[in-house]
Design a protein around this nucleic acid. Structure first.
Lengths: 112, 112
DNA sequence: TAATGATATATCATTAAATGATACATAAAG
DNA sequence: CTTTATGTATCATTTAATGATATATCATTA
């Protein structure tokens, strides 16, 4: 968000999270969009505009890189080690967000 | 995000998530900020600007409301039923985000 | 063969979200 | 008396997300 570059801060927005997660295994742009839709049962979808702007930023931050493949028509990307590390950190951050909510509701005797 | 009001879309940004979670029990603004810092062990912090702008939006969407207390100096807020419902939905969405990541890493034989 | 839909990449202008900076006021502590 | 903590609030700016749009190829089908 504003006055703060989330990637430089070591944070992933939901969009960046799903793109990076898709790129644990090499994929080209269009396949990333499909993968995310399939993975989330259409609950989360990213259009080309969001995807390509995010890919640019992920490349610039070296969280993903171009993957060598011989197809000149499609650009294929893959997460870097730095990218995987950040992704795992961000999985954990979301886990903690769930735990924080569970703690609040448990204290009230409510379940989630 | 752009061209899309997340609250109207039924989504909570991390900032809105933590504020709403704090307001499962009635609190005034300053206490919300402290609660979030304490709850997250200073890993997540929200300044006054982010907080008051978010509170305005949560009020407008009726996800929180003013809580009747007799202190004229402090405005106290509490989550509405609508707010609690959305919060629970968003806890689940984050749970799913974790599960999606676990699925990808498990498929690679890796643990998280 | 012509048209159509799926595949594939990319940019621009716009809107929304987040926040640093700033302002102001009171109460407590030193 | 001065500083620190408490408490609320706005403005201007930056970043993030996306609808709209553009372009091109390939496979299918009418």
């Amino acid at each position: 968000m504003a006055r703060n570059d989330t990637l430089e801060m070591g944070e992933l927005t939901d969009t960046a999270y799903y793109i990076l997660l898709s790129l644990v295994e090499a994929k080209h742009g269009y396949l990333i969009m499909q993968t995310i839709e399939e993975m989330t049962d259409q609950r989360f979808s990213i259009g080309p505009a969001s995807m390509y702007t995010t890919i640019k930023k992920l490349l610039a931050s070296e969280l993903i890189k171009l993957f060598e493949d011989h197809d000149p028509k499609r650009k294929t990307y893959i997460a870097t080690e730095k990218g995987i590390d950040l992704l795992k950190k961000e999985v954990n951050r979301r886990r903690e967000m769930v735990i924080h909510a569970e703690a609040v509701f448990n204290r009230k005797g409510e379940q989630l």
